[in-house]
Design a protein around this nucleic acid. Structure first.
Lengths: 107, 107
DNA sequence: TCAATCAATAGCCATTTGGTTATTGATTTT
DNA sequence: AAAATCAATAACCAAATGGCTATTGATTGA
């Protein structure tokens, strides 16, 4: 019942987690250590957030020795954009209906 | 510290609440009773969701006798679109940097 | 006027969530 | 080989969240 869109919205809802994702978008690939250094929370907390971001498809990880590098997967934002324009579309459709109605009333 | 964007993401995170907003987008203005009839939760629960949606600027209410009509405020989605394209922008900027680097290496 | 209806609020409860510290497994470094 | 470092996992906890029932206030209908 809980689809990909639900997961996406829920994952992006937390400000700390979104900040981590934003940083990966702005600055590209980062290690867990680098992300922890500026997140203001503990390393395990950061790892947990990264795990959720990965489950949502928003980041991917790359292991290199004992470090793990994470990077943003921008494509994962597509459902978000789709949803937004879908909502905008409904709104416009209703606006057009109203316009038609007014046009008919005018005649 | 908790800005409008935070509120927006947090408000849209819950599937039930988002479904209510979607319905208002698709079908236009609805009363609390109409929304409750298909939400699968109690009237007070629906009212609570509507209260949060209103706080986020996603809906507005209109009182008419003892009924309250709610409608979607599409403009409130702008920060969401802005954020998404901002993220996409960062990604592209880094892509360009990479492209430049490769071009320089090629010479 | 009295009963019925509509929506908001109050008060409560179970679950989820985001954080912590402690530990473990794996890889480097000395 | 032993010590140090990095990131994931485990176990726990407090706070936030989303739901419920009961109630209230306001409006409408009989």
């Amino acid at each position: 019942m809980t689809n990909a869109r639900d997961v996406l919205f829920r994952t992006l809802a937390d400000p700390t987690r979104r900040a981590i994702f934003e940083r990966l978008c702005r600055q590209g690939e980062q290690t867990v250590g680098a992300l922890t250094a500026q997140a203001g929370i503990s390393q395990p907390a950061v790892s947990k957030h990264l795990g959720l971001l990965r489950q949502a498809g928003l980041v991917r990880d790359r292991h290199e020795g004992r470090q793990t590098h994470y990077s943003a997967q921008l494509g994962a934002l597509a459902p978000l954009m789709d949803w937004t324009s879908e909502m905008a579309g409904f709104w416009e459709a209703r606006f057009d209906q109203l316009e038609d109605l007014l046009k008919r009333m005018d005649q």
